[in-house]
Each structure stands twice: as C-alpha cells, then as structure tokens.
Write a protein that binds this DNA or RNA. Structure first.
Lengths: 157, 157
DNA sequence: TGATAGATGTTATAACATAACAAAAATTGC
DNA sequence: GCAATTTTTGTTATGTTATAACATCTATCA
C-alpha cells in the first residue's frame, strides 16, 4: 500500500462524499452518522464497534451498543464502509459511488487495509462460480499477510 | 453442489482420514475430538460452536465453551475443518491431506456449503496480490448465493 | 514410578451483536 | 402552522461468540 500522504484529506473526502451521496439520495447524514463515519476513517486500519462506542461515550454518555451498530448498518447499507468478516471490524470505503466488487489486503504487521478492485480477478471469480452452477450474490474476499512497506522495513532491521 | 448420496459415508471417511493423519503425525485423536469432528460433519451445512456444545452437553454435562473451542482449534490447526468467517461457523474439510487454498460456496437457501479448489482462480489471486506487492499468508474467500438445486427447485414451484 | 507433556475441567469474563419497545425529531400533507 | 407519519435515536435487556487463567487429570517416557 502506498501510504496516504495526508490522512486528513482522506477523512475530509470521505465525509464530503458521504454528504453528497446522502443529499442526492434523500438520506439524512446526521451528526451521529458523520461522527461514526469519521471514527471509522480515523485510520486505514480496522475500526472495532466497541472502540467507536468508547469514543462516542466520551462526548455522549447516552451512546450504547445499538447506537453504534445501527449507525454502522446505515453506513454499510449505503456503501460508505465495509465490514471485514475475518476481523469483526469495519473500514471506510474509498469509492462509495462505484458499487464494484472489491477485496481487501490486510497487513498483519501495521494493520493497514487496502481496498482493491480487479476486473480480471472478478471475472475469474464469476467464471469459477458459474462453473459450479452457483448463483452468486455476495463475495467475501479478505487477504491477510504483510504489506510492501512492512516487508521492506523488516528487511532494513 | 451435487448432493452427497450417502452422508454416513462422508462422515465415516472424514473420521477415518483424521484418525490416520493423527496416527501418522503422532497426534492424539481422542474421543472428544472424534465426537466434535463428527458433529461438525453432521451435515454439509455450517456447524456453530454453541450448537456443538449443546449436543456435547447432552452426553457430558462437564462440557463448557473452552471444551468446544479448544477442540475446534485442534481440528482447525490440523486441517480437519475450516472456519467460515462470514457465518461464525465451522465446516468439515473434504481433503485434509492436500493443503490447498480453497474457497466456499455457501447456499443461503439450503445452507449447504461446497468446498472448492481452483487453480486458475488461485493464480489470479496470487498474481493480483503480487501486483500490489503484498505478501500473502492467508486468504478468506466465501461466496454466498444460491446453489444449483435450490435454484432449480425454486423454478419448479 | 516419578517427571513431564498434553489434554481436559472449571470459573469467570471479554468481545461482538441484536430484540423490543419508548421517546424525540424531521418530514409530509393538509 | 400543525396533525399525522416516518425516521432517527434512546433505553433496557439479553443473546451470541470467544478467550484468559489456573486446576486437574491422563498418557507417555525416561
């Protein structure tokens, strides 16, 4: 993963994009939803529901698990975030408008997650699934390992 | 998925194979491990840890969550079962000796799970991952949808 | 046959997630 | 504007999945 140069910009873009999409679709991008999306985007690593809850609780003692899970559900349904099944965690979506099948590269070392789309891989998936005469509705593809910069750093040491 | 003709045979084969492998590797295939593996293999659907616990408890009131999770860990480590991250459930492995990368077709309708291996798909995965200069250690690939026989049956009605 | 490694028992709790109903706030139609 | 409706958030309780930490038992081996 080429590390982002300015993560404030990542966050800003994600929030702006979500706001736009909500306006277009007539959805309400409430303070709570904005805050939670911002927290998911706090890093390129996985965000855990109860960590988000803990952060919310600092400002708002009324926050409870359903507060967070409902908000995450809203963000998931509208494609603003993804759930990582292998981590029980959430990560921001870099292209909420394009509803492409994507997969994730999860670095076990630095924790960063790269969201990827690849047409060739996708076709391979669709084709092999078709060959099994299976009617695909959803794909979970999560690849863990070590990202380039972590491998490089390890070698330096 | 072509439905298995004789599921008793599936179970029998799985238990025999596990026993062989354990003998060869000097591992102990205890009564508990045999029972849990059998329970995971009770169907081609996903087996949930607490369901296994409930079944075990019928015969043995001493069974507690760690009893089950430790046994599942043993079975996972030795390749006798797989964990389905998207379901928080477990399924028997059809070829514990061949340590191939595999993926899963999960039918949302009948619940059956087909374990698949595909060289082309695998290469596509390895290649796209390499292109991101990512060092892969583990792949989670779970495809949900509807299996052939469920689609057919739906059309009949 | 005592030491030791591996397996299981036991207690407690952590981590993840949802059901069900109440209240509040925004939106819509009049 | 305001009553009706829908959407969002609050609240309480609980369900589900999983592990930590330490004790005991059992198989194996020197």
């Amino acid at each position: 993963m080429q590390p982002c140069q300015n993560h404030e910009k990542c966050i800003h873009t994600a929030l702006e994009t979500a706001e736009h999409i909500c306006r277009d679709k007539g959805l309400r991008f409430t303070e709570l939803r904005r805050k939670v999306l911002q927290m998911v985007w706090a890093s390129h690593g996985p965000a855990k529901a109860y960590e988000i809850l803990a952060k919310l609780s600092l400002e708002d003692p009324k926050a409870k698990p359903p507060t967070v899970y409902r908000t995450l559900d809203f963000l998931l349904e509208n494609g603003f975030i993804h759930k990582l099944q292998s981590l029980n965690a959430y990560v921001g979506c870099s292209h909420p408008l394009e509803k492409r099948q994507c997969y994730f590269l999860i670095c076990d070392h630095c924790g960063d997650i790269e969201e990827c789309c690849n047409v060739v891989l996708n076709e391979a998936l669709v084709n092999t699934t078709k060959a099994s005469r299976f009617h695909l509705t959803n794909v979970t593809l999560e690849i863990s390992g070590e990202c380039e910069s972590c491998v490089k750093n390890a070698k330096k040491v």
